[in-house]
Protein backbone atom coordinates (compact mmCIF):
# COMPACT_ATOMS: atom_id res chain seq x y z
CA UNK A 1 0.00 0.00 0.00
CA UNK A 2 1.45 3.32 -0.99
CA UNK A 3 1.76 5.91 1.72
CA UNK A 4 -0.70 8.26 0.05
CA UNK A 5 -3.55 5.78 0.17
CA UNK A 6 -2.51 4.93 3.72
CA UNK A 7 -2.84 8.56 4.74
CA UNK A 8 -6.20 8.78 2.99
CA UNK A 9 -7.37 5.60 4.71
CA UNK A 10 -6.37 6.98 8.10
CA UNK A 11 -8.27 10.16 7.39
CA UNK A 12 -11.42 8.30 6.37
CA UNK A 13 -11.23 6.10 9.46
CA UNK A 14 -10.93 9.13 11.67
CA UNK A 15 -13.97 10.72 10.02
CA UNK A 16 -16.03 7.57 10.48
CA UNK A 17 -15.02 7.27 14.14
CA UNK A 18 -15.90 10.91 14.69
CA UNK A 19 -19.36 10.30 13.28
CA UNK A 20 -19.73 7.26 15.55
CA UNK A 21 -18.66 9.29 18.55
CA UNK A 22 -21.29 11.87 17.83
CA UNK A 23 -24.03 9.28 17.56
CA UNK A 24 -24.58 9.42 21.33
CA UNK A 25 -25.17 13.15 21.14
CA UNK A 26 -27.49 12.63 18.19
CA UNK A 27 -29.51 9.99 20.03
CA UNK A 28 -29.75 12.18 23.12
CA UNK A 29 -30.94 15.03 20.94
CA UNK A 30 -33.51 12.83 19.18
CA UNK A 31 -34.85 11.53 22.48
CA UNK A 32 -35.28 15.02 23.87
CA UNK A 33 -36.65 16.40 20.62
CA UNK A 34 -39.33 13.75 20.23
CA UNK A 35 -40.40 13.64 23.85
CA UNK A 36 -40.60 17.43 23.94
CA UNK A 37 -42.34 17.79 20.58
CA UNK A 38 -44.97 15.29 21.64
CA UNK A 39 -45.25 16.41 25.24
CA UNK A 40 -44.93 20.20 25.24
CA UNK A 41 -47.97 21.19 23.12
CA UNK A 42 -50.29 19.95 25.82
CA UNK A 43 -48.66 22.31 28.30
CA UNK A 44 -49.79 25.18 26.08
CA UNK A 45 -53.16 23.72 25.45
CA UNK A 46 -54.10 22.70 28.96
CA UNK A 47 -51.85 25.05 30.87
CA UNK A 48 -48.68 24.28 32.81
CA UNK A 49 -50.40 24.71 36.16
CA UNK A 50 -53.31 22.45 35.41
CA UNK A 51 -50.90 19.69 34.43
CA UNK A 52 -48.15 19.98 37.00
CA UNK A 53 -50.39 21.03 39.89
CA UNK A 54 -53.61 19.45 38.67
CA UNK A 55 -55.03 16.83 41.00
CA UNK A 56 -57.21 14.99 38.52
CA UNK A 57 -56.02 12.66 35.78
CA UNK A 58 -58.85 11.80 33.36
CA UNK A 59 -57.20 12.30 30.00
CA UNK A 60 -60.21 11.27 27.94
CA UNK A 61 -62.23 13.95 29.69
CA UNK A 62 -59.59 16.66 29.38
CA UNK A 63 -58.03 16.45 32.84
CA UNK A 64 -54.28 16.03 32.76
CA UNK A 65 -53.27 16.70 36.35
CA UNK A 66 -50.21 14.72 37.34
CA UNK A 67 -49.45 16.34 40.69
CA UNK A 68 -50.29 13.20 42.67
CA UNK A 69 -47.93 11.22 40.47
CA UNK A 70 -45.10 13.73 40.91
CA UNK A 71 -45.57 13.56 44.67
CA UNK A 72 -45.80 9.77 44.55
CA UNK A 73 -42.62 9.50 42.47
CA UNK A 74 -40.78 11.55 45.07
CA UNK A 75 -42.30 9.57 47.92
CA UNK A 76 -41.24 6.18 46.55
CA UNK A 77 -37.82 7.57 45.71
CA UNK A 78 -37.24 8.77 49.27
CA UNK A 79 -38.76 5.59 50.61
CA UNK A 80 -36.31 3.59 48.50
CA UNK A 81 -33.46 5.74 49.75
CA UNK A 82 -34.45 5.29 53.39
CA UNK A 83 -34.42 1.54 52.95
CA UNK A 84 -31.66 1.13 50.38
CA UNK A 85 -29.08 3.73 51.33
CA UNK A 86 -28.12 2.56 54.86
CA UNK A 87 -28.00 -1.05 53.76
CA UNK A 88 -26.05 -0.20 50.60
CA UNK A 89 -23.59 2.05 52.39
CA UNK A 90 -23.07 -0.58 55.08
CA UNK A 91 -22.25 -3.12 52.38
CA UNK A 92 -19.91 -0.69 50.64
CA UNK A 93 -18.06 0.14 53.86
CA UNK A 94 -17.77 -3.52 54.75
CA UNK A 95 -16.46 -4.39 51.29
CA UNK A 96 -14.00 -1.52 51.13
CA UNK A 97 -12.70 -1.52 54.69
CA UNK A 98 -13.35 -4.81 56.42
CA UNK A 99 -13.69 -7.66 53.93
CA UNK A 100 -10.63 -9.79 53.32
CA UNK A 101 -9.41 -10.44 49.84
CA UNK A 102 -11.11 -13.80 49.47
CA UNK A 103 -14.33 -12.57 51.01
CA UNK A 104 -14.33 -9.71 48.53
CA UNK A 105 -13.81 -12.09 45.63
CA UNK A 106 -17.10 -13.68 46.55
CA UNK A 107 -19.11 -10.74 47.92
CA UNK A 108 -18.44 -8.18 45.22
CA UNK A 109 -19.69 -10.24 42.25
CA UNK A 110 -22.61 -11.54 44.31
CA UNK A 111 -23.71 -7.99 45.11
CA UNK A 112 -23.27 -6.95 41.48
CA UNK A 113 -25.47 -9.81 40.36
CA UNK A 114 -28.37 -8.11 42.15
CA UNK A 115 -28.23 -5.52 39.37
CA UNK A 116 -28.74 -8.24 36.79
CA UNK A 117 -32.07 -9.47 38.17
CA UNK A 118 -34.71 -8.01 35.81
CA UNK A 119 -37.06 -5.46 37.33
CA UNK A 120 -40.10 -7.55 36.43
CA UNK A 121 -38.75 -10.31 38.65
CA UNK A 122 -38.42 -7.89 41.58
CA UNK A 123 -41.95 -6.71 40.97
CA UNK A 124 -43.28 -10.25 40.73
CA UNK A 125 -41.68 -11.34 43.99
CA UNK A 126 -42.89 -8.10 45.56
CA UNK A 127 -46.46 -8.94 44.61
CA UNK A 128 -46.22 -12.51 45.82
CA UNK A 129 -44.33 -12.00 49.07
CA UNK A 130 -44.07 -8.38 50.21
CA UNK A 131 -47.60 -7.25 49.36
CA UNK A 132 -49.33 -10.14 51.18
CA UNK A 133 -46.95 -9.73 54.11
CA UNK A 134 -47.94 -6.09 54.50
CA UNK A 135 -51.61 -6.91 54.04
CA UNK A 136 -51.54 -9.60 56.71
CA UNK A 137 -49.23 -8.09 59.28
CA UNK A 138 -49.37 -4.32 58.82
CA UNK A 139 -52.63 -3.49 57.17
CA UNK A 140 -54.26 -2.12 54.06
CA UNK A 141 -54.39 -3.87 50.73
CA UNK A 142 -50.65 -4.35 50.68
CA UNK A 143 -50.25 -2.56 47.37
CA UNK A 144 -48.69 0.51 48.87
CA UNK A 145 -46.02 3.12 49.25
CA UNK A 146 -44.36 0.81 51.76
CA UNK A 147 -44.26 -2.18 49.42
CA UNK A 148 -42.96 -0.04 46.58
CA UNK A 149 -40.27 1.52 48.77
CA UNK A 150 -39.07 -1.89 49.89
CA UNK A 151 -38.87 -3.27 46.37
CA UNK A 152 -37.15 -0.14 45.04
CA UNK A 153 -34.88 -0.04 48.07
CA UNK A 154 -33.54 -3.44 47.10
CA UNK A 155 -33.31 -2.44 43.45
CA UNK A 156 -31.11 0.59 44.09
CA UNK A 157 -28.68 -1.40 46.25
CA UNK A 158 -26.27 -2.28 43.42
CA UNK A 159 -26.01 1.37 42.33
CA UNK A 160 -25.44 2.64 45.86
CA UNK A 161 -22.98 -0.13 46.70
CA UNK A 162 -20.82 0.01 43.60
CA UNK A 163 -20.48 3.80 43.41
CA UNK A 164 -19.86 4.39 47.09
CA UNK A 165 -17.47 1.43 47.12
CA UNK A 166 -15.46 3.08 44.35
CA UNK A 167 -15.51 6.33 46.31
CA UNK A 168 -14.19 4.64 49.45
CA UNK A 169 -11.54 2.75 47.51
CA UNK A 170 -10.26 5.96 45.98
CA UNK A 171 -9.42 7.37 49.42
CA UNK A 172 -5.60 7.18 49.55
CA UNK A 173 -4.15 4.41 51.68
CA UNK A 174 -1.92 6.86 53.47
CA UNK A 175 -4.96 8.50 55.10
CA UNK A 176 -5.90 5.19 56.67
CA UNK A 177 -2.37 4.32 57.66
CA UNK A 178 -1.90 7.74 59.20
CA UNK A 179 -4.99 7.34 61.36
CA UNK A 180 -4.24 3.75 62.31
CA UNK A 181 -0.67 4.68 63.20
CA UNK A 182 -2.04 7.20 65.69
CA UNK A 183 -3.80 4.40 67.52
CA UNK A 184 -7.32 4.71 66.10
CA UNK A 185 -9.36 1.56 65.80
CA UNK A 186 -10.49 0.43 62.39
CA UNK A 187 -13.93 1.90 62.90
CA UNK A 188 -12.63 5.24 64.21
CA UNK A 189 -10.43 5.45 61.12
CA UNK A 190 -13.31 4.57 58.84
CA UNK A 191 -15.79 6.91 60.49
CA UNK A 192 -13.54 9.93 61.01
CA UNK A 193 -11.17 9.68 58.06
CA UNK A 194 -12.30 7.40 55.25
CA UNK A 195 -16.01 8.19 55.07
CA UNK A 196 -15.54 11.99 55.25
CA UNK A 197 -12.94 11.76 52.46
CA UNK A 198 -15.27 9.71 50.29
CA UNK A 199 -18.44 11.58 51.14
CA UNK A 200 -18.97 13.25 47.77
CA UNK A 201 -18.84 9.86 46.03
CA UNK A 202 -21.20 8.45 48.63
CA UNK A 203 -23.58 11.34 48.07
CA UNK A 204 -23.38 10.81 44.32
CA UNK A 205 -24.21 7.13 44.78
CA UNK A 206 -27.37 8.10 46.66
CA UNK A 207 -28.38 10.63 44.01
CA UNK A 208 -27.85 8.09 41.24
CA UNK A 209 -29.77 5.56 43.30
CA UNK A 210 -32.62 8.08 43.43
CA UNK A 211 -32.38 8.40 39.64
CA UNK A 212 -32.72 4.65 39.37
CA UNK A 213 -35.73 4.62 41.71
CA UNK A 214 -37.59 7.50 40.13
CA UNK A 215 -37.15 5.92 36.69
CA UNK A 216 -38.13 2.38 37.60
CA UNK A 217 -41.33 1.26 35.97
CA UNK A 218 -42.33 -2.38 35.75
CA UNK A 219 -41.65 -3.34 39.35
CA UNK A 220 -43.52 -0.25 40.54
CA UNK A 221 -46.58 -0.99 38.42
CA UNK A 222 -46.79 -4.42 39.96
CA UNK A 223 -46.63 -3.46 43.63
CA UNK A 224 -47.83 0.18 43.87
CA UNK A 225 -51.54 -0.35 43.34
CA UNK A 226 -51.61 2.54 40.83
CA UNK A 227 -54.31 4.62 42.56
CA UNK A 228 -54.72 8.15 41.24
CA UNK A 229 -54.33 10.11 44.44
CA UNK A 230 -51.68 11.32 46.82
CA UNK A 231 -51.19 8.54 49.39
CA UNK A 232 -52.29 9.53 52.88
CA UNK A 233 -50.10 6.95 54.61
CA UNK A 234 -47.38 4.48 53.79
CA UNK A 235 -50.05 1.82 53.43
CA UNK A 236 -51.95 3.63 50.68
CA UNK A 237 -51.59 2.73 47.00
CA UNK A 238 -50.12 5.25 44.60
CA UNK A 239 -49.18 5.79 40.96
CA UNK A 240 -45.83 7.16 39.84
CA UNK A 241 -44.97 9.11 36.67
CA UNK A 242 -43.35 6.07 35.12
CA UNK A 243 -46.20 3.70 35.80
CA UNK A 244 -48.67 6.24 34.43
CA UNK A 245 -46.87 6.12 31.09
CA UNK A 246 -46.46 2.36 31.00
CA UNK A 247 -50.03 1.60 32.09
CA UNK A 248 -51.72 3.64 29.38
CA UNK A 249 -49.31 4.00 26.46
CA UNK A 250 -50.43 0.88 24.63
CA UNK A 251 -54.00 2.11 24.12
CA UNK A 252 -53.76 5.90 24.38
CA UNK A 253 -54.31 8.15 21.37
CA UNK A 254 -54.70 11.86 20.63
CA UNK A 255 -54.55 14.18 23.64
CA UNK A 256 -54.39 11.18 25.93
CA UNK A 257 -51.13 10.03 24.34
CA UNK A 258 -49.84 13.60 24.47
CA UNK A 259 -50.62 13.62 28.17
CA UNK A 260 -48.38 10.60 28.58
CA UNK A 261 -45.58 12.38 26.76
CA UNK A 262 -46.13 15.40 29.03
CA UNK A 263 -45.66 12.99 31.93
CA UNK A 264 -42.47 11.90 30.17
CA UNK A 265 -41.29 15.51 29.92
CA UNK A 266 -41.69 15.96 33.68
CA UNK A 267 -39.96 12.65 34.38
CA UNK A 268 -37.10 13.50 32.04
CA UNK A 269 -36.67 16.88 33.74
CA UNK A 270 -36.46 15.29 37.18
CA UNK A 271 -33.90 12.78 35.90
CA UNK A 272 -31.77 15.46 34.28
CA UNK A 273 -31.76 17.52 37.47
CA UNK A 274 -30.71 14.47 39.50
CA UNK A 275 -27.97 13.57 37.02
CA UNK A 276 -26.80 17.15 37.05
CA UNK A 277 -26.48 17.13 40.83
CA UNK A 278 -24.68 13.79 40.78
CA UNK A 279 -22.24 15.22 38.24
CA UNK A 280 -21.67 18.39 40.23
CA UNK A 281 -21.01 16.38 43.37
CA UNK A 282 -18.58 14.07 41.59
CA UNK A 283 -16.78 16.89 39.80
CA UNK A 284 -16.38 18.85 43.00
CA UNK A 285 -14.46 15.91 44.36
CA UNK A 286 -12.19 15.77 41.31
CA UNK A 287 -11.30 19.45 41.57
CA UNK A 288 -10.58 19.14 45.27
Amino acid sequence: MSSKTAVLKERIIKQVLTVFAFSSILFLFLIFAFILVEGLPLFYKAGVNSIIFGMKWAPTKGFFGIFPMIVSSFLVTFGALIIGAPLGLGCAVYLAEYAGKRQKMFLKPALELLAGIPSVVYGFLGVLYIVPFIRNFVGGSGFSLLATSIVLGVMILPTVISISYDALMSVPRSYREGALAMGSTKWQTTWRVVIPSGKSGILASCILGMGRAVGETMAVIMVAGNALKIPGSVLDPLRTLTSNIALELSYASGDHRMGLFSTGVVLLSIIMVLNYFANVVIRRKVIK
Binding site: L28, L30, G215
Partner: peptide, 14 residues
Protein backbone atom coordinates in the same frame (compact mmCIF):
# COMPACT_ATOMS: atom_id res chain seq x y z
CA UNK B 1 -23.55 9.92 30.70
CA UNK B 2 -26.97 11.39 30.03
CA UNK B 3 -28.03 8.41 27.92
CA UNK B 4 -26.94 6.13 30.75
CA UNK B 5 -29.14 7.99 33.22
CA UNK B 6 -32.33 8.00 31.16
CA UNK B 7 -34.87 5.50 32.51
CA UNK B 8 -36.03 2.67 30.33
CA UNK B 9 -39.62 3.89 30.14
CA UNK B 10 -38.37 7.06 28.42
CA UNK B 11 -36.59 4.85 25.91
CA UNK B 12 -39.87 3.07 25.48
CA UNK B 13 -41.68 6.34 24.86
CA UNK B 14 -39.04 7.51 22.43
Amino acid sequence: ESLAGIPSIIYGLF
